[in-house]
Design a protein around this nucleic acid. Structure first.
Length: 447
RNA sequence: GCUCCCAUCGUCUAGCGGUCCAGGACGCCGCCCUCUCACGGCGGAAACACGGGUUCGAGUCCCGUUGGGAGUGCCA
């Protein structure tokens, strides 16, 4: 059977690194098996969901390089959900309850205070029709719960092996709100069935939902798909981030000028047995992706690791691949220049600096203590500069002044580039050109 | 409170009773390369949370403690 996976965020915020990881695991699984990846926007919480967030998530997913075979919202499928709810009512698995949220909260607190698990007592299930009529006469509207069988549900988890959940220790989940809107527990399962989802890969925060969902799949006459629950990420300080977003949003990482594959590589590989290394594209990442290699404990995601990965990607980038990216930055995609400076790039945006150094003008620092040396350097500069010029030129200056090492090179680097460190000067010299080089040397020598 | 999961170098981890004076990756430190910095190459320091068991033998199994993560919603 063809593999179909889905990533189902709720559009109540933008994607953070934890969500992105789940999206990536699904996308990689699809890539590896030749299956389809569906982006499903679980927007049943209409009070918190917004179109802007939905659009943002679509954008975030695309930024990661994931191409969904289909994008779907749940609220658009209300008719289908209605039909399923009716069938569930008919089979006696869905029952009306009349407690208010406040009453339920009060009961929960009382149970907790007594050291008992806060499980719903199924008052609604034993209501007679007269009682229901009386309740509704009070103006109460029902919300609907799914009657659990209360058994040990088992599944073979793709990431954690044999798992079981005892639905007897859980409350019957509410499937329909008092105002008639559905909760994701129902819609998620219905849509998974209708979209023929074969593998549900998600964070371990969903592990306890799995028992309920398997019962629902079965109550609906379907066979539950395979489940795989990966570990969750924490911040560098070790705090859980499953329900936070903040600085680890994809948006902020992108704004920081990081390559999507640097972010994706770390997100996918950290918390697994694989060595963390930057992979050039999702296909390459899929190559060493393995759900079984994901560990069980929470793993830290430290954004401080990103720049090094980003640099790896850039250092291996070909001028051809860089060209469109440089154009997007408004830079002339000069392949020789790119090859000369790429080893010094951490973020692609760093290229601006070297483009400026080579093709534009820079503020040359004045170095009075090296003035004589710099003037001499300007005099000795050959009229025509090529690849060999740097070696010849500096060798001559070394012989004439006795300077060597840092004393010889540092003033030159500073005068030519205005920077303390940078690309190989032998490569930069011909790119900057004799006129500018001479002018900068004299400017740096000026009192 | 209750339930579940986890616990090895700074970080991510390998390890599935002897082959581990614990292996890899990132980071860090040093050396080399280059007539400078960076890039690159090579090398080094660095860990089995604690306490009880079980066993001839425990990083590896069991219990507890501590620490961390998650769930316990008319959120997803």
């Amino acid at each position: 059977m063809a593999v179909t996976v889905r990533f189902a965020p709720s559009p109540t915020g933008r994607l953070h690194i934890g969500n992105a990881r789940t999206a990536l695991y699904n996308a990689l699984y699809a890539l590896k098996t030749g299956g389809d990846f569906i982006l499903r926007l679980d927007d049943t919480d209409t009070e918190r969901s917004t179109q802007d967030f939905a659009d943002g998530i679509v954008e975030d997913v695309a930024w990661l390089g994931i191409v969904p075979a289909r994008t779907q919202t749940q609220t658009a499928r209300k008719a289908r959900h209605d039909a399923v709810a009716d069938a569930l009512r008919a089979s006696g698995r869905l029952y009306a309850c009349y407690e208010t949220p406040e009453e339920l909260e009060y009961r929960r607190r009382r149970l907790l205070a007594r050291g008992l698990p806060p499980i719903y007592d199924r008052t609604g299930l034993s209501l007679t029709s007269d009682e229901r009529t009386a309740l509704e006469a009070e103006g109460r509207r029902p919300h609907w719960r799914f009657r659990l069988e209360g058994r040990v549900v088992e599944w073979d988890d793709l990431a954690r092996g044999a798992q079981k959940a005892d639905t007897a220790s859980m409350s019957d989940p509410v499937l329909i709100r008092e105002d008639g809107r559905y909760l994701y527990t129902l819609t998620s399962v219905v849509d998974d069935i209708d979209f023929a989802v074969t593998h549900i890969i998600r964070g371990e925060d969903h592990i306890s939902n799995t028992g309920v969902q398997i019962e629902l799949f079965e109550a609906l006459g379907a066979t539950a798909p395979a489940f795989g629950h990966h570990n969750l990420l924490t911040t560098a300080d070790g705090e859980g981030l499953s329900k936070r977003s903040g600085a680890l949003s994809l948006q902020s990482l992108r704004a920081d000028g990081l390559e999507p594959m640097a972010v994706a590589s770390l997100a996918v590989l950290t918390g697994t047995a694989h060595a963390v290394a930057a992979r050039a594209d999702l296909d390459a990442l899929a190559g060493d992706f393995d759900l079984a290699a994901v560990s069980r404990g929470a793993a830290r995601f430290d954004p401080a690791d990103l720049p090094a990965l980003n640099a790896q990607l850039l250092h291996a980038m070909t001028p051809e691949d860089a060209a469109p990216r440089l154009k997007a930055l408004g830079l002339d995609p000069d392949p020789v220049l790119f090859e000369a400076v790429r080893a010094n790039l951490v973020r692609l945006g760093d290229a601006r600096l070297w483009w400026q150094v080579v093709k534009g003008e820079i503020a040359v620092p004045v170095m009075p203590e090296d003035a004589a040396f710099l003037r001499l350097a300007a005099e000795r500069l050959p009229g025509r500069i090529d690849q060999a010029s740097w070696g010849l030129w500096t060798k001559a200056l070394k012989a004439e002044t006795g300077r060597k090492g840092r004393a010889l090179f540092h003033p030159l680097r500073l005068a030519l580039t205005g920077e303390e460190s940078g690309p190989e000067l032998a490569a930069l010299l011909p790119l900057i050109g004799p006129d500018k080089v001479r002018a900068r040397l004299l400017a740096a020598a000026a009192a």
